[in-house]
Computed example of a mutant assay.
Amino acid sequence: MDKELPEGIGKLGWTVGLATFLDGVVEGKQLFKVEPGNCCDHALEQASVLLDSARRASFIGVMDDEPVLVWASHFLSEMAKAVIDDAHMGMQEKTEPV
């Protein structure tokens, strides 16, 4: 990756690509994984957007009796957790971009 990055990009570190989400049909297998080498700053911003979407879907789903929105909230929350967990690992390691 080009070492000449814009100011402030990656100051918290880079995702490591270890966090997974959404169980697969085979025990112990996950369907999705966070990609390594993403800026933790940006990853955390995106996790915030995912959590806000989950909050809204959950509220509307409960208030309007729409179970599909409650399930969407569950999956968005799981995705956001994986992004936050992976960014946290990257911030602890202070890894270089992949």
Rank of each mutant, 00 (worst) to 15 (best):
S73P: 14
F32N: 00
P67H: 05
Q46H: 07
M63W: 03
D64K: 04
C39T: 05
M89S: 11
L69E: 06
E93D: 10
A82M: 02
V26K: 00
T95R: 11
A72R: 07
C40L: 00
G8W: 11
F75C: 09
S58D: 11
D41Q: 04
M89N: 05
H88I: 10
F59W: 13
M1V: 12
D23T: 08
A54I: 02
E27W: 12
W71L: 06
S48N: 08
Q46V: 12
P67E: 01
K29R: 10
G90V: 03
D85M: 10
E66P: 09
S53W: 01
H88Q: 02
D64V: 01
T20C: 12
H88Y: 08
A54K: 08
G90H: 04
E4D: 13
L76Y: 12
D85A: 08
C39Y: 07
K33S: 11
L18T: 08
S77K: 14
V83D: 00
V49E: 04
E35F: 03
L22F: 03
K94C: 07
H74D: 09
M79R: 07
E96R: 11
A72C: 13
D64E: 05
D64R: 05
L76D: 15
D41H: 07
K29P: 07
G17F: 14
K94D: 11
S77E: 14
L44I: 00
P97E: 13
A80L: 09
L31V: 12
E27G: 01
F75D: 03
M1K: 00
S77M: 04
D52N: 13
A43Q: 05
G28H: 03
E66R: 00
S73Y: 04
H88C: 07
M1G: 14
K3A: 08
I9F: 14
D86H: 02
R55Q: 11
T15P: 03
L22M: 04
K3Q: 10
L69C: 05
P36R: 09
M89L: 11
S58Y: 11
P6F: 12
I9N: 01
E35T: 06
E66S: 06
W71R: 09
E96H: 13
D23P: 03
S77N: 12
F32I: 03
A43M: 15
D65E: 13
H42C: 15
G61Y: 04
E93Y: 05
W14E: 07
